[in-house]
Amino acid sequence: MLSACSSQTQGQAARFGLVDGASDRAAHMESMWTGAWIAALIVGVFVWGLIIFAVVRFRRRSGDPEIPRQSRYHLPLEVLYTMVPFLIIGVLFFYTVRTQSSVLAKDTKPQHTINVVGQKWSWTFNYMEADNPAAGSVVTREAGTIEKIPDLYLPVNESVRFHLNSADVIHSFWVPAFYFKMDVIPGHPNQFDLTPTRVGVYDGKCAEFCGTYHANMLFKVHVVPVSEYNAHLQKLKAAGQTGEVKAPASVTTLAGSSPSQEGSEGK
């Protein structure tokens, strides 16, 4: 009980369980999440109130008949409980579409591009900085393995475009502090933009069960000043970690398919 009184826990409780946001898309998602919880609580309190009222008001008393008086039709009530759910769905749909449009909005000219490859069972991050002299004017990369969790460096307050590709099966790129995740689908590249807004180290993971070592698909996100971001890419360049690692142009079969299946699907 005492540990629940910390300022961090209280702040998270006020956000209905969300961690503190660290991207420009977080505000849109937090507003939608909080609004949905408030709407659910209002509906819940109303329904609980009706149940309690019915239990108290219409409880059986001594002298009451075995079966209460029945009402066959009550048109106003029937219209009410038919229209209210449609109203609730309509409002939630409106705010969902509005939030989706804001979260998936693209910058006309993002300042950085990172090509992400998901593979069984880790991640590869390609920093597409060939036109950035401060970062070494070269494409650098960092690849993780089952034994080594990779690090993803991002510059604070600068827009980044992520290109997502899979080398094998469906993965999902998720950074909880960004309030955002997107599927990484073989043969179907995805992309999104966001701007990190708070310096710190955050957890990243795969949010799609992708096989035996799915739990190992972790990575660390380092949101740092731009100078530190460029210095890290210079370090990767000095270590010889240059050139882009690409996923196959198309993946026609999942791992473990028989040769005959692969040939027929390829055709």
Rank of each mutant, 00 (worst) to 15 (best):
R161C: 00
V160A: 00
A177N: 12
W174Q: 12
F178R: 11
M182L: 15
P189G: 08
G187Q: 01
D193F: 03
H171F: 15
P176V: 04
K181G: 14
P189S: 08
I185Y: 06
S159V: 05
L164C: 00
I185E: 13
N165T: 15
F180R: 13
F173S: 03
F178Y: 09
L194A: 02
V160N: 00
S159M: 05
F180G: 08
A167E: 11
R161S: 02
F178P: 10
F173V: 06
F180M: 10
P176C: 03
V160K: 06
N190S: 11
L194M: 14
S159L: 08
R161K: 09
L164A: 10
H171T: 10
M182A: 14
A177K: 11
P186Y: 03
R161A: 00
P186W: 02
F192H: 04
S159E: 00
H171L: 11
D193Y: 03
I170D: 12
V169P: 05
H171G: 08
V169S: 14
F180Q: 14
W174E: 13
L194Q: 04
E158W: 00
S172Q: 13
R161M: 00
P176G: 09
F173N: 00
D193N: 12
F173P: 07
H188A: 10
K181A: 07
M182V: 04
S159Y: 01
N165C: 01
D193E: 02
Q191D: 15
N190T: 03
D183K: 15
F162D: 08
P186M: 01
H188Q: 15
F162R: 01
H188L: 07
K181D: 15
V160L: 05
L164F: 06
